[in-house]
Simulated assay, not measured.
Amino acid sequence: MTARLDAKFAALAQEGRAGLVTFLTAGDPDPATTLALLKGLPAAGADVIELGMPFSDPMADGPAIQWASMRALKAGQTLAKTLDLVRAFRASDATTPLVLMGYYNPIYVYGVERFLDEAKAAGVDGLIVVDLPPEEDDELCLPALKAGLAFIRLATPTTDDHRLPKVLANTAGFVYYVSITGVTGTVTPDFDKVGSAVARLKRHTALPVAVGFGVKTAAHAAAVAKGADAVVVGSALVEALRTSLDAEGRATEKTVPAVLGLAEDLAAGVRAAAKAA
Results as ranks from 00 to 15, higher is better:
residue 235 S to A: 13
residue 145 L to G: 06
residue 137 D to E: 14
residue 168 L to F: 07
residue 192 D to N: 13
residue 239 E to P: 00
residue 159 T to K: 09
residue 210 A to K: 01
residue 185 G to F: 00
residue 146 K to G: 06
residue 142 L to P: 02
residue 238 V to Q: 04
residue 217 T to Q: 03
residue 173 G to L: 04
residue 193 K to C: 00
residue 246 D to F: 12
residue 254 K to N: 15
residue 227 G to K: 06
residue 151 F to V: 01
residue 202 K to P: 14
residue 238 V to H: 07
residue 210 A to G: 14
residue 226 K to T: 00
residue 158 T to F: 02
residue 246 D to L: 07
residue 136 E to Y: 08
residue 133 P to A: 14
residue 253 E to L: 09
residue 221 A to Q: 12
residue 215 V to Q: 05
residue 216 K to V: 04
residue 231 V to S: 03
residue 152 I to K: 04
residue 212 G to K: 01
residue 177 Y to D: 00
residue 189 P to Q: 12
residue 186 T to I: 15
residue 232 V to N: 13
residue 246 D to N: 13
residue 237 L to Y: 09
residue 211 V to M: 14
residue 169 A to E: 15
residue 135 E to P: 08
residue 217 T to M: 04
residue 220 H to I: 09
residue 203 R to Y: 10
residue 223 A to V: 06
residue 155 A to L: 02
residue 166 K to R: 14
residue 231 V to F: 05
residue 223 A to L: 06
residue 168 L to R: 12
residue 170 N to Q: 15
residue 149 L to D: 02
residue 219 A to R: 10
residue 243 T to Y: 12
residue 145 L to K: 09
residue 233 V to G: 03
residue 245 L to E: 05
residue 150 A to W: 08
residue 243 T to K: 11
residue 169 A to Q: 13
residue 144 A to R: 11
residue 197 A to G: 06
residue 253 E to M: 07
residue 234 G to R: 05
residue 182 G to Q: 07
residue 242 R to P: 07
residue 151 F to Q: 03
residue 163 R to D: 08
residue 156 T to E: 05
residue 146 K to A: 15
residue 192 D to W: 11
residue 224 V to Q: 02
residue 219 A to G: 06
residue 218 A to Y: 05
residue 232 V to D: 10
residue 187 V to E: 15
residue 238 V to R: 02
residue 201 L to D: 03
residue 135 E to S: 14
residue 159 T to N: 13
residue 198 V to L: 06
residue 141 C to V: 15
residue 212 G to P: 00
residue 223 A to R: 03
residue 230 A to Q: 02
residue 242 R to H: 14
residue 254 K to P: 11
residue 173 G to A: 03
residue 192 D to E: 15
residue 142 L to Q: 07
residue 159 T to I: 11
residue 168 L to Y: 14
residue 195 G to R: 11
residue 208 P to V: 01
residue 134 P to A: 01
residue 248 E to F: 07
residue 243 T to S: 09
residue 207 L to I: 07
residue 154 L to P: 12
residue 198 V to G: 05
residue 212 G to V: 02
residue 239 E to G: 04
residue 164 L to W: 00
residue 138 D to Y: 14
residue 209 V to D: 02
residue 174 F to D: 01
residue 189 P to F: 05
residue 239 E to R: 09
residue 168 L to I: 13
residue 195 G to L: 01
residue 152 I to S: 00
residue 239 E to K: 12
residue 205 T to Y: 05
residue 140 L to D: 00
residue 220 H to V: 08
residue 225 A to E: 09
residue 161 D to F: 01
residue 222 A to L: 00
residue 173 G to Q: 06
residue 167 V to H: 03
residue 204 H to P: 07
residue 173 G to I: 03
residue 175 V to N: 03
residue 183 V to D: 04
residue 177 Y to L: 01
residue 162 H to N: 12
residue 189 P to D: 06
residue 221 A to M: 13
residue 220 H to C: 10
residue 133 P to W: 08
residue 217 T to P: 06
residue 206 A to N: 15
residue 185 G to H: 04
residue 134 P to W: 04
residue 174 F to Y: 08
residue 159 T to Q: 09
